[in-house]
Simulated assay, not measured.
Amino acid sequence: MIIDLTGKTAIVTGSTAGIGFAIADGLAKAGARVVVTGRTQAAVDKAVAAIKAGTTAGSVEGIAADLASPEGAAALVRAVPQADILVNNLGIYGAKPLFDLEDDDWLKLFDVNVLSAARLSRHYAPGMKDRGWGRLIFISSESAQNIPVEMVHYGVSKAAMQALSRGYAKALAGTGVTSNAVLPGPTRTDNVGQFLADFARERGIPAEDAEARFLTENRPSTLIRRFATAEEVANLCVYVASPLSSATTGAALRVEGGIVEGIG
């Protein structure tokens, strides 16, 4: 199987680190023109340089903007008016007891995780439709189907992304444009590394035991018994972004190590 994205322009939101960076890197290695986005110019420049250092297949550029705001989205659209592939990866999370969640907690999660994706998809999808080809990818989470009690607002926002993806798939039926949600599970990233270090310290256990302990306590149904790597998530996304995935649309594609119970 050869994935060739030469001639395609791909935007990956929230792509200066973690899963977003791995997706941007994978798309560039497949030959795409990749637009990296992040909130600060320094983070964007660092990510662009790292991707360029690893491949000469595609081209890479960066846009610094807060895509959770209308102004940030407008800045991206001005810089890159059209795209063939839009990966809505931008997202935040945080633990807080359900009964302590205030309106601002909900609004912040939805502005970043949902409205940013809705706003950008609203702009880029019509152009894809007019050209007869395109890929919308929404990075949801296994938490959309397995709502975590410690961060219900996060799970709800990711369920909304899954619904948004399905809605776009139906609106774009028969156009050559596909829309899919990708559902990662616990994934090893820099942010998660700090989370696990804090987790180990709180429980008084060695740092190397934190991952297994977290899974035992919080995701006991995992079948791979480990965190995924960002590259493992990115591999699925690169395939979904490619012409090879043309019969896959409106789907919730799980790359979460079997955490979600059920065979659907």
Rank of each mutant, 00 (worst) to 15 (best):
I3M: 11
D4N: 14
A10Y: 08
G14C: 12
S15K: 06
G18A: 05
L27T: 03
V36P: 01
K52A: 06
A57C: 02
E61P: 04
I63E: 04
P70S: 12
E71I: 08
E71S: 13
A74E: 14
R78I: 01
N89R: 10
L90D: 04
G91L: 06
Y93C: 04
P97S: 09
D100K: 07
D103H: 07
L107C: 06
L109D: 10
L115H: 12
S116L: 09
A118M: 15
R119I: 11
R119V: 12
H123S: 11
P126W: 00
G134N: 06
L136C: 08
L136V: 13
I137L: 15
F138C: 01
Q145G: 01
N146V: 05
V152A: 14
G155L: 07
A159N: 09
A160S: 13
M161Q: 15
Q162F: 00
A163K: 08
L164H: 03
S165A: 11
A171D: 15
G176E: 07
G176W: 05
S179V: 07
N180Q: 03
A181D: 06
G185N: 10
T189W: 03
N191S: 12
G193H: 03
G193D: 00
F195I: 01
L196V: 07
D198K: 11
D198I: 07
E202N: 07
D209C: 01
E211I: 09
R213P: 00
F214G: 02
L215M: 15
E217D: 14
N218R: 14
N218M: 13
N218D: 10
P220L: 04
P220S: 02
I224P: 11
E231F: 03
E231M: 02
E231Y: 00
E232T: 13
N235E: 13
Y239L: 12
V240T: 14
S242K: 06
P243F: 04
L244Y: 08
S246Y: 12
I259T: 04
I259W: 00
G264A: 12
